[in-house]
Design a protein around this nucleic acid. Structure first.
Length: 815
DNA sequence: AGCCCCGGTGAAGTC
DNA sequence: CACCGGGGCT
């Protein structure tokens, strides 16, 4: 059977429409990866050269898996030649070839977010700015936003709008910081993540011959997850596709969840305007999930205003209802979810790796980890604090980076005195100052120390010279020996291994540090043993040709995987990419954020922490577009499930060192109860009397004075902050919002209508209620969306009444 | 120069 | 609660 016969008619048409602009709107689970894969295979079958195909995927893992599938159809040797990967990794490769044209070295380093933050901090110090006003993460976001909109530092400074904004937010120096930051990275031969796209744009804009070259090279362009591209990415694609217009974008506006990093949903909504003669294919049949899940997901997303109309349907079985788990605390949530997984495993003979726990924030993983350990269920966590961010690993990597690029000031500062060499802070202060004054890198100063006459004594000067010699010696074999050999040599020779070995016996942390370094070396070993791809060879060959006089790589050396390539590889890995090959088949429950779960599927999915202010996040609930993004996130979460989805929430959660009380997420109420299965009736209301008393006592102890909301001015909108930090009284404290609403309860003992409405809005099946006329009863059916929700209630006398909630004024029972 | 302790402060999501 | 940075002590 021909591979195209495995596709349904729409899928097949989409795969075969190879010429001209094409937009594929692909609902969740609609076999989009399969279409993309077969589309590429089909192109190659039509004798399109693999070198002429560029496919941009969301993770490198996705690229790798697609390549493997294509290899099975068209053969390994052909498929290898495809340019395929994430935007960042593909264009980082392209920049390696072309970087020198825009003044960067071809071995430029890539700074991760931590690096960038420390640079910002440094600049703030230099400019004598308060890092409480100019919070590094905020500054970085602002710069990142600008870069993703292709605004450079000069344009930023000259732009009256940005200037006005910064002036109003009392951060008039942002432009200057941006300028200094960019200058500094450029001097260090470093790019941040956004630069990889920004500089690609610069290249294509300023060098028409290069644009022409790459337009001809990438005759066929495919972009996956197009709804999550930002302006910078959009322009790159638009430029590259301008000549042949063989551009195929695949996306689902319902799954756009990255606007916080500049993704613009309009890119997909406006594709039609850019390419009026496009062909559109809608993949609406879901092959992944049960009817229940698909229907529930459709209902959820229907609450959003902005969307491309489509109807996702499935021929799969109805399946089981979506389970709701209610827990009293976050710890109990962990326990109940773990119990449920244990039970499901037993009843359905499922494996651990059939399960995923998806949460809104990384910090939620803790309670699940604990419960899994107790039940002896194996699990793995994606994301969170990265291996590569740990101190000892970062130290090692900074050695590598400085070896590769001597001008990398950040790395140099970190390791010049680690392990201790007697080059102290005061010495470094002098050098750093001199470097700044002369607009040179630190390396340029310390290799020419005598010239600057810094009053550093001979002993220390000697030590610095030793350090320079040491780093230079590491660099000699950088391109001739493989990454593992070099890394191992550096770690041994620098004394890091020795240092950590000594620590290893002293403390448990010491042991784990030592093990981490060993793990790092193992990882490098794995990397070295992987076969080199044709693109990598291509990159090296081209760089070779450019640098005519000095030959960078001999033929043999082109074949060896270098430390530089390793460094590039790891900085551009996504959380999902970080999973090692041998871990893939391990039978473990997966724990990850919903963001990280995009594109994945599991038989049983637990979406946890479904509480107001957590999911949807408290930062989003005052803004429709942000709330809609949260809803799309929920949509993504639910549609990961094949057989069953379970939603859980806790009524009390430990956050910011405090117990906070939580209400179930509005998202639960957006699903028709007929798709939901509620827990056994649990006696008692969410907050019982003794808890209430405790809260009241706590409140009285802490607050013998009045406090109000802390108003912060933000982009001309007055926002009411959820945390009550009252600086005007000089007493700052950290009390969750719930205590504020408690106060209002205490002050108005009479019926508080707003809480009653909230209660009614969030009413659940099986919930005990009290009606003024009919007395106590239990909710047995809920129909329609608020405010038209109708509830059928079975009262104690056995009568059933159907009541419109907005009129019924039901209350919580007191029992 | 390096270590430790204290207090203040802060957690959405990521290439 | 967990992390970070500053200050003080050895």
């Amino acid at each position: 059977m021909h591979f195209l016969d495995e596709l349904n008619p729409v899928q097949r048409a989409a795969a075969q429409a190879t010429e001209g602009p094409v937009m594929i709107i692909a609902g969740a689970g609609s076999g989009k990866t399969r279409v993309l894969t077969y589309r590429i295979a089909h192109l190659m079958e039509k004798n399109v050269d693999a070198f002429n195909i560029l496919a941009l995927t969301f993770t490198n893992k996705a690229a790798k898996e697609m390549k493997e599938r294509i290899s099975k159809i068209v053969g390994v040797s052909e498929a290898k030649n495809l340019w395929m990967g994430t935007f960042h990794s593909v264009f980082a490769k392209l920049l390696r070839i072309e970087a020198e044209k825009i003044g960067y070295p071809s071995n430029f380093i890539i700074y991760d977010t931590d690096d960038c933050k420390s640079i910002i901090k440094d600049i703030l110090k230099q400019l004598n700015l308060d890092d409480k006003i100019y919070k590094p993460s905020m500054v970085l976001n602002r710069i990142s936003d600008a870069k993703n909109k292709l605004i450079n530092a000069q344009q930023y400074l000259n732009n009256p709008i940005t200037q006005q904004e910064d002036y109003q937010s009392r951060k008039p120096m942002l432009g200057k910081i941006y300028e200094a930051y960019q200058k500094r990275n450029f001097k260090a031969g470093a790019m941040d993540f956004d630069d990889l796209l920004f500089q690609t744009n610069v290249l294509l804009r300023d060098f028409p011959d290069l644009l022409y070259k790459y337009q001809n090279k990438f005759k066929y362009i495919l972009v996956d997850e197009y709804q999550d591209t930002n302006f910078s990415q959009y322009v790159i694609i638009k430029q590259l596709a301008a000549r042949f217009q063989n551009i195929c974008v695949v996306g689902d506006d319902a799954q756009s969840i990255y606007s916080f990093r500049g993704a613009n949903i309009q890119n997909i909504l406006n594709f039609e305007k850019d390419y009026p003669d496009l062909r559109t294919f809608k993949l609406e049949q879901n092959y992944r999930s049960t009817k229940t899940i698909v229907s529930a997901a459709n209902e959820i997303i229907a609450n959003n205003k902005d969307q491309i109309k489509k109807l996702v349907f499935t021929d799969n079985e109805i399946g089981t209802k979506i389970k709701i788990i209610k827990a009293s605390t976050d710890n109990e949530e962990g326990k109940k979810v773990a119990d449920s997984i244990f039970e499901t495993k037993m009843n359905n003979q499922a494996n651990n790796n059939d399960f995923a726990i998806l949460y809104r924030t990384n910090s939620q993983s803790r309670s699940f980890e604990e419960s899994f350990r107790k039940l002896n269920i194996q699990y793995k966590i994606y994301g969170g604090v990265s291996f590569y961010q740990r101190k000892e690993i970062k130290d090692a990597l900074c050695y590598f980076r400085l070896t590769i690029n001597h001008n990398d000031d950040e790395s140099l500062k970190r390791i010049i005195n680690y392990p201790a060499r007697g080059i102290g802070q005061s010495t470094m202060d002098k050098i750093i100052l001199t470097a700044a004054e002369n607009e040179k890198s630190i390396w340029e100063i310390i290799t020419d120390l005598k010239k600057y006459n810094l009053g550093i004594n001979n002993g220390i000067t000697n030590k610095i010279e030793q350090f320079v010699i040491q780093i230079k010696s590491y660099a000699i074999n950088l391109n001739t020996k493989d990454a593992f050999e070099i890394a191992n040599h550096i770690l041994v020779n620098s004394g890091i291994i020795k240092e950590l070995y000594a620590e290893k016996t002293e403390t448990p942390e010491g042991l784990s540090r030592y093990e981490n370094i060993q793990e790092l070396l193992n990882g490098i070993k794995d990397f070295v043993e992987q076969e080199r791809t044709p693109q990598e060879i291509e990159v090296k060959e081209v760089i070779n040709k450019q640098t005519e006089n000095e030959t960078l790589f001999t033929e043999n050396e082109i074949d060896c995987r270098t430390l530089n390539e390793y460094m590039q590889d790891i900085t551009l890995m996504t959380d999902v990419d970080k999973e090692k090959d041998d871990e893939k088949n391990e039978d473990k429950v997966s724990l990850m954020t919903i963001h990280a779960s995009k594109g994945l599927e599991f038989k049983y999915v637990y979406v946890v922490g479904l509480e107001e202010n957590l999911f949807p996040s408290q930062l989003s609930i005052n803004d429709r577009t942000e709330l809609e993004e949260e809803r799309r996130l929920f949509y993504v979460a639910i549609t990961r499930a094949e057989k069953n989805a379970t939603l859980s929430y806790a009524t009390m959660r430990f956050r910011f060192g405090n117990t906070t009380f939580c209400e179930p997420s509005r998202f639960i109420t957006e699903i028709n109860p007929k798709y939901l299965e509620f827990p056994e009736i649990e006696k008692g209301p969410v907050v019982n009397d003794s808890m209430f008393d405790k809260m009241r006592n706590q409140y009285n102890e802490n607050n013998s004075f009045n406090f109000g909301f802390n108003k912060t001015k933000n982009n001309n909108n007055i926002k009411v902050s959820n945390l009550n930090t009252d600086n005007t009284t000089g007493i700052g404290f950290n009390k969750p919002k719930q205590f504020v609403s408690l106060k209002s309860k205490l002050n108005s003992p009479s019926t508080n209508s707003s809480t009653d409405i909230d209660f009614n809005k969030n009413l659940m099946i099986n919930e005990p209620v009290f009606h003024e006329k009919f007395g106590e009863g239990i909710v047995i059916l809920l129909e329609g969306n608020w405010p038209e929700t109708k509830a059928t209630i079975e009262f104690k006398d056995g009568s059933k009444k159907s009541l419109l909630l907005k009129f019924a004024k039901l209350k919580k029972t007191n029992s």
